[in-house]
Design a protein around this nucleic acid. Structure first.
Length: 274
DNA sequence: AGAGATACCTGGGAGC
DNA sequence: TGCTCCCAGGTATCTC
């Protein structure tokens, strides 16, 4: 399921595949994912050239030469490919954007939690402002132990729900929150405001290191995730505790526990995480 | 304002 | 075998 490292890998691949390419056709096969896909058909995308590909949190934006942009989010099963139109459409491929090199940007999403929309910068409350409202990028200098400690003031929710809040830090989902809290030795159930400054520092350091390693490894392929070239991410094998409830803790050997936090299963070591 | 619950959706696995 | 049920996940939206 795409989190930040997966989105960044998609961004890098789309930057190579789409920059400078002209959109020559639009095909929409299914009316809706998270939002309706029908506006793509009447958005006059034909003739537009992709000028750059950006990322904000888990969102990837392909900027067009007329100032608009294509914003995409991959939910938990979104996959994009840039490949020949002649390859038969897969069951859950919902959109093809035909390119001037004979290939197509093809958007697949099994569980329809993804999003693909055109935005105009002028739209009040449109995508640029919504992206700007997201919390700091975890790999930026803006995300620090001091900032995390300040944001946690007065917040009584469990640490895990807190760090998965996109307004606190963006792009960290269940996998990387689980792994980062384990690496930092923090109990995911602990009320956010009770994290010490040292723990906030540790969390930031570990989260940044894990995210950087995951990006370098091409992301984590859990269930449906594939990179733009169809390859699987190699980081899944480096996950230490995600999805390993009942197994021995890789640090101390105690059995890993699993609890529900914010409606999401959360694996942790009751010995190592305080 | 914060926090919890719920809906959205599909495929895969467990259990009968 | 075939059926039902539950679970996974991010985000929006609702209620308390």
């Amino acid at each position: 399921m795409p989190e930040l490292p997966e989105a960044e890998n998609i961004r890098m691949a789309l930057e190579r595949a789409l920059t400078g390419r002209r959109i020559v056709g639009v095909q929409v096969f299914s009316p809706a994912m998270r939002t309706s896909l029908l506006p793509l058909k009447t958005a006059a995308l034909e003739g537009r050239i992709v000028t750059s590909v950006r990322r904000r949190g888990r969102y990837v934006v392909a900027d067009l030469d007329d100032g608009r942009g294509l914003v995409m989010h991959f939910g938990m099963s979104g996959v994009v490919r840039v490949e020949s139109l002649s390859i038969p459409r897969r069951k859950h491929e919902h959109v093809f954007l035909e390119l001037d090199d004979g290939r197509a940007f093809r958007f697949e999403c099994t569980r329809r939690f993804s999003l693909l929309e055109v935005f105009t910068p002028e739209t009040p409350g449109g995508w640029p402002s919504r992206l700007a409202d997201l919390g700091p990028e975890p790999l930026s200098g803006e995300f620090s132990g001091a900032a995390l400690k300040a944001a946690a003031k007065g917040r009584n929710c469990p640490v895990k729900a807190f760090v998965m809040d996109n307004a606190v830090v963006t792009g960290i989902g269940n996998i990387y929150a689980t792994e980062s809290l384990f690496a930092a030795g923090i109990d995911p159930r602990k009320p956010a405001h009770r994290m010490t400054r040292l723990q906030c520092d540790r969390f930031c350091e570990e989260a940044k290191a894990i995210l950087r390693r995951a990006i370098a490894a091409g992301g984590s392929s859990i269930s449906d995730f594939r990179n733009v070239d169809g390859s699987e991410g190699r980081f899944a094998r480096e996950l230490l505790i995600y999805g390993r409830a009942g197994e021995a803790c890789p640090k101390c050997g105690a059995p890993l526990k699993c609890v529900q936090i914010g409606g999401r299963s959360s694996c942790f070591c009751p010995q190592c995480q305080k």
